[in-house]
Design a protein around this nucleic acid. Structure first.
Lengths: 145, 145
DNA sequence: CATATTTAAGAGTATTTAATCTTAATTAGA
DNA sequence: TCTAATTAAGATTAAATACTCTTAAATATG
């Protein structure tokens, strides 16, 4: 199941890299992230621009410039990132693509799909980048490969 | 969340149409299904060919030809259809696209995503086309729009 | 002020997915 | 046997997504 686009996958991985390995009091360069994760520098740059415009990242140009979190990682929830990268309507879509599907005109799998989306949304709403960053640092989970 | 491709969405809708409104002892033409659901005849034909090759449908050419279920609708589970239309690995993919993600090398959202996929897989495994067809016939749910 | 380093912006290209079109094969019925 | 109705097969086109490239703007440092 391909739930996320490449933008979503790469963006989330690159962002988590920053959260897991933040430079102290300074910016982290996109080049280091993209090289370390084996992602396209230009593609990551484009994705980060979106995150910067939407207030999740700060960016700074010039030598020793780069990007940084705009807020403490404790205050950024996974759902905020997903909604920027995949669109605000990420959790609103009918599994069969029916535009008027809803409680009034449910599609054949509406009720069940609603529950799945709700579970996802709740989890993403309660998971901070800080939590995931910590799991990465302690090597409980991995960001590469 | 775009869980299914157009092939999956159209294919499932078209198949459910057949299940909900089966002609007695005969084939249903693809033209009637695609016209009624407002889908491309050629696209649906291509999708049905796949379902025929994989043993979910029977097809018959010539006048009063068309397609029919290869087995009783009670014996066809949603998961069988999804796996044909979206690939056998539909439930095996890492949310972040990491090829080696698994219990040995989990990605940051592995555990949670595993549960979501498992819930989906279980539901799809326990839902027969017959059940959904009945819901459509009784207008408890809808296939159009 | 010159240069190197970095992100910003957007144009351009490639790949994948979606959809359409054309022709062939099959079959029923007049 | 002819014609119309139907699916099969695959070529072709269109659109969306995924990248890549080039140039501009900002800024630190010598």
């Amino acid at each position: 199941m391909k739930a996320l686009s490449q933008v979503g996958k790469y963006g989330l991985r690159a962002l988590l890299y920053l959260v897991a390995y933040p430079p102290e009091n300074q910016y982290l360069s996109i080049r280091q992230i993209s090289d370390d994760l084996g992602l396209s520098f230009h593609f990551v740059t484009k994705i980060f621009r979106e995150l910067t415009e939407k207030g999740i990242l700060l960016s700074y140009r010039g030598p020793s410039g780069g990007i940084a979190l705009a807020k403490p990682a404790e205050e950024i929830m996974l759902i905020d990132v997903i909604k920027v990268l995949e669109g605000e309507d990420f959790f609103d879509k009918c599994l069969l693509g029916l535009p008027h599907c809803g409680s009034a005109k449910p599609c054949p799998v509406h009720e069940f799909w609603k529950e799945v989306k709700s579970q996802l949304q709740e989890n993403f709403s309660n998971t901070s980048l800080a939590l995931l960053g910590e799991k990465i640092r302690t090597q409980e989970v991995r960001l590469d490969e």
